[in-house]
Simulated assay, not measured.
Amino acid sequence: MSGATTLKLSIPTPVVSMLPGASSPWEQTGTIEDVARIAQAADRLGFHHLTCSEHVGVPADEAVRRGGRYYDPLATLGYIAARTTRIRLATMVLVLGYHHPLEIAKRYGTLDVVSGGRLILGLGVGTLKAEFDLLDVPFEDRGSRGDDALRALRAALSQPLPAYEGEYYSFGGLLVDPCAVQDQVPLWIGGRTRRSLRRALALADAWAPFGISLAQAKEWLDQEELPAGFEVVLGPSQALDPLKEPDRALEELATLAAAGTTIASTRVVHDSPEHFIDQLEALAAIHPPAA
């Protein structure tokens, strides 16, 4: 794979979430300054985006599987925005049912303003019923409610006088200032079902699934007609080690591209912030991120 490739590279941000089996021990005591240094390196090297996920509260028995740490994405990405200049800032993901669409439009529209138009809204319908119950929001109709929220967001983002009439959400006659500065904020859909892919194709700009195999993702993608410009964000089967195994790293990226990936979520082997940055530099040297 050469620099001519169109496969873009991104990073799942360390420290801000701790996923069992995927996080490195140093992240347990890692700081926001460590995150900022890594973000600045990714920014300098031309990586496409970095991420921050959302959970308000994870039940203790679920934390064994999902992890218990989740930095708030708005505060975290706002801080990173001030420390970087180019890299895009992706919520991966906000749970639609936890927020009114106008809350997202205002809060994250403000983030788009202060970051100079670098916001990507990664969104999902959610699966953790205990968290829905904690927040006193409906769980059973979260799919149809989420679809309506996506339509409402599309109508509201970047509009100082948004108006929408839908099944669950209706609004108009309100001034939302500031609002997003991008003409169309990218909406990406997370999830782990074929329904999430169909939701992304119908209502959004990209599919960024988690917890499914590359073979399964390719099977579903092969059965759909993808519109021009539609992004597919997938990660390698295991963390890359471009410092020690550059050829294997390139093979993994080629496999991702062959499956239909347009942006690779490049999880790397790392045992410190410095090692993480060294890995990003090594990866960018053998495969320019093409941001």
Rank of each mutant, 00 (worst) to 15 (best):
A41C: 04
S24A: 14
L134P: 03
Q182D: 10
T84S: 07
T85C: 07
Q159M: 01
G191S: 09
Y169A: 02
A228P: 12
G191F: 08
V95I: 13
R107D: 09
L214N: 15
R145C: 00
D205M: 00
Q223A: 06
E251D: 04
V58D: 14
Y169C: 05
A200E: 08
P25F: 01
Y98G: 11
S196Q: 03
R267F: 11
P138V: 02
I286G: 05
P288D: 08
S265D: 04
L280S: 07
H287C: 07
E62W: 11
Y168M: 05
L135Y: 09
F230S: 01
R154Q: 07
E219R: 13
F132K: 13
E140Y: 04
R88S: 10
S17R: 11
F230Q: 03
L234G: 03
L253G: 09
E167M: 02
G68H: 15
K8D: 11
I120V: 13
A258S: 10
G3E: 05
V16Y: 03
L256D: 08
Q279C: 06
S237G: 14
P186W: 06
M92K: 12
S196A: 14
T85Q: 15
A206C: 10
G3Y: 00
L19M: 10
A204V: 04
A81R: 14
E140P: 05
G190M: 08
R248K: 09
A204Q: 01
A180G: 11
L256W: 06
A90V: 05
G173F: 14
I286E: 03
V233T: 00
A156I: 03
I277T: 01
R248P: 04
T261S: 12
D133P: 02
E219P: 05
A257T: 08
E54G: 00
P73E: 00
D247H: 15
E274G: 14
G211D: 08
L89S: 12
A215S: 15
P186T: 06
A259Y: 09
A63D: 03
D148C: 00
D241A: 08
L135P: 12
R118V: 02
F210A: 11
L256F: 00
R83G: 11
L187G: 03
E225F: 07
G21H: 05
D136K: 11
F210C: 04
H48C: 01
D43V: 07
A75R: 13
M18F: 10
L234T: 13
Y98W: 09
H100A: 15
S213C: 00
S265L: 15
A90K: 14
L119K: 06
L19R: 13
D133I: 00
A228D: 15
S237R: 14
P138F: 06
S115I: 04
V114H: 14
A75S: 15
K8P: 08
A155L: 06
G46H: 12
A249R: 06
A4V: 10
G97Q: 08
E62M: 10
I87P: 12
L74E: 06
P73R: 09
L135M: 15
G146I: 09
L89I: 13
L102K: 15
G68T: 11
V185K: 08
G126F: 04
L19W: 12
G211Q: 01
R248Y: 11
V268N: 01
V125F: 07
A290R: 14
E219H: 13
V35Q: 05
R88A: 09
